[in-house]
């Protein structure tokens, strides 16, 4: 059944990776400076970084914080977004506040939050939570708003209560959009994690990256870039698989990846 074209399209992201690495390799050879190692060199440093138990623990700690922040955000943001999408009052209430928070870089709150909660896990997890919440709220809001009114009417006619309609009709109907928000949120969680650690400079993947930068260990810098980049790509691909399973029924629709915070 799988045709040759299918295989090529499955392999093409891999080819793209190889192409980018090759480009890097050529650029590094051409520039030939100590501060810009070749792709090959950086790749060789990756196992070295991951082999160091302290650094590996650091990175795993980062991932743990990211998972906790992300999960909390999703649990709170989806109900809020759905409520905003179905009630003009709720949305009028929260929208302006959210609009004000949206352009504030969540990781930039680190210095302030660190004053209150210290430099530990709590601050970093809170920042990740904030970063993930907004896109998830936004997409849940959009998804719930777009739910066909008639579907809710037929639900009401069948005797479903308001809450039941929310869970049995709005949630599944908005699921594709919600999952798009979660996917964006996942990328954001990773980004916020790295940035908050870059700013707090205590522990974690972002800290390793910038410490290496300060100590001019350029191989480690680029190895960390590869590790964090790969983490992003793998998490995104995995989530996309999951999403695809959950909403196979939905028509393919456009998705815009948000890429920062």
């Amino acid at each position: 059944m799988t045709s040759a074209r299918n295989i090529v399209s499955k392999l093409s992201p891999l080819l793209a990776c190889l192409g980018l690495l090759a480009l890097w390799q050529v650029a590094a050879l051409w520039l030939d400076t100590e501060s810009f190692p070749t792709a090959w060199h950086a790749l060789q440093t990756v196992p070295q970084v991951l082999g160091d138990p302290e650094q590996l623990l650091n990175i795993l700690d980062s991932i743990r914080r990211m998972v906790i922040g992300f999960s909390l955000a999703v649990l709170i943001a989806i109900p809020l977004g759905l409520a905003m999408g179905r009630s003009a009052r709720v949305s009028a209430f929260f929208n302006p506040l959210l609009m004000m928070i949206y352009p504030v870089p969540k990781a930039a709150l680190m210095p302030v939050i660190m004053l209150w909660l210290g430099v530990g896990d709590a601050s970093k997890t809170l920042v990740i939570f904030l970063g993930v919440s907004l896109p998830v709220i936004y997409h849940s809001f959009q998804g719930a708003k777009a739910v066909e009114e008639k579907m809710l009417w037929s639900g009401a006619a069948m005797g479903l209560s308001g809450l039941q309609r929310m869970i049995r009709i709005v949630l599944p109907a908005a699921l594709p959009e919600i999952l798009t928000g979660c996917r964006t949120g996942l990328v954001l969680a990773l980004i916020t994690m790295v940035t908050s650690e870059m700013i707090a400079r205590q522990s974690g993947a972002g800290n390793i990256l910038f410490n290496a930068m300060d100590m001019a260990q350029y191989d480690t810098v680029f190895a960390m870039i590869i590790i964090i980049g790969a983490l992003g790509i793998v998490l995104d691909a995995a989530f996309d698989k999951l999403r695809w399973r959950l909403v196979k029924w939905a028509e393919p629709h456009q998705e815009i990846l948000l890429g920062a915070s």
């Binding site: 093409s12 793209a16 980018l20 810009f36 790295v194 810098v221 870039i225 964090i228």
Partner: peptide, 23 residues
């Protein structure tokens, strides 16, 4: 473009910042 975007879009770009500073 499609495979390149597939790879680059989910990449956390801030992680590239040190490289950009170096370059």
């Amino acid at each position: 473009v499609r495979p390149l975007v597939q790879v680059l879009a989910p990449l956390p770009k801030v992680a590239l910042y040190p490289a950009l500073i170096i370059l």
